[in-house]
Amino acid sequence: MRQCEATAHVPPAGLLFAVLAGQGRVLGSELAYTPPRVRCELGLGHDGEHADHVWDWDHQPAHALWARWTTGQPLRFESLPWCETLGGSDADACTLYWDHSRAHSWAVHDPETEALRRQIVEEHADVPDEPS
């Protein structure tokens, strides 16, 4: 299933306030990795709001901070538990939030990432898979 292509701008102050409200502190170096934009991680045609993971909690590893939005509406932040369903080819846990709609993460494919992967493979076709 293709990944939803909805995007939204992340207000830096809003993200900082959400992180501070959730864990009480944040290092400036950690903020360097926060996204300026989010892209919905759910499968195309999902129900409800768009969602993208934006922060892992230091104090609560079973939950994460997610950006949630409806197109044309302000983005908001919500702490949600991880989906713990196991599956896919590696039997890994789903990397979406609990109770997400539609497919689990291993069944959702980003066409941009797939195109980049194909380009890298083509550009480096002469590189051996194993070191000699």
Rank of each mutant, 00 (worst) to 15 (best):
H50F: 03
W55E: 11
A64F: 08
A51L: 02
A103D: 14
W82F: 10
G72I: 07
W98D: 15
T85H: 02
A93H: 10
H104N: 08
E84H: 06
H100R: 02
H109C: 13
T85K: 06
L96E: 03
A62H: 09
F77L: 14
Y97V: 06
L65C: 08
W57F: 15
H63K: 07
R76D: 12
L75H: 01
A51Y: 07
W82R: 05
C83S: 05
G45K: 02
L96P: 05
H104Q: 04
A64V: 15
D92R: 10
L86I: 08
W98M: 14
A107C: 13
E84M: 08
Y97S: 10
G72H: 00
E78W: 12
H46N: 06
L86S: 05
H63E: 15
T71S: 10
D90E: 15
W98K: 13
S89F: 02
H59A: 12
T85G: 01
D56F: 07
D47Y: 00
T70C: 10
W66M: 05
P74H: 00
H100F: 12
V108K: 04
G48E: 01
Q60G: 04
W82A: 06
H100V: 07
R102L: 05
W66I: 11
H104C: 12
H59S: 09
P74L: 12
W57A: 09
E84K: 03
E49G: 00
A67L: 13
S105A: 13
T95S: 06
A62W: 14
L75E: 06
S79N: 06
P81V: 01
V108E: 14
A107F: 15
A93F: 09
A103K: 11
T95R: 07
A91W: 14
V54M: 01
D58Y: 11
V108G: 05
H50N: 10
A91Q: 13
D56I: 03
L80F: 00
G72N: 07
D58R: 10
Q73W: 08
E78I: 12
L96D: 05
H63W: 11
P74I: 14
H100K: 00
A64G: 13
Q73M: 03
H109K: 11
W55Q: 04
H53Q: 15
H59T: 10
L96V: 06
T71E: 13
P61A: 01
A51E: 06
S105C: 04
E49F: 00
E49L: 02
P81M: 00
R76G: 05
D58L: 13
L96F: 11
L96G: 02
D90F: 02
A67W: 06
H50E: 07
W98C: 13
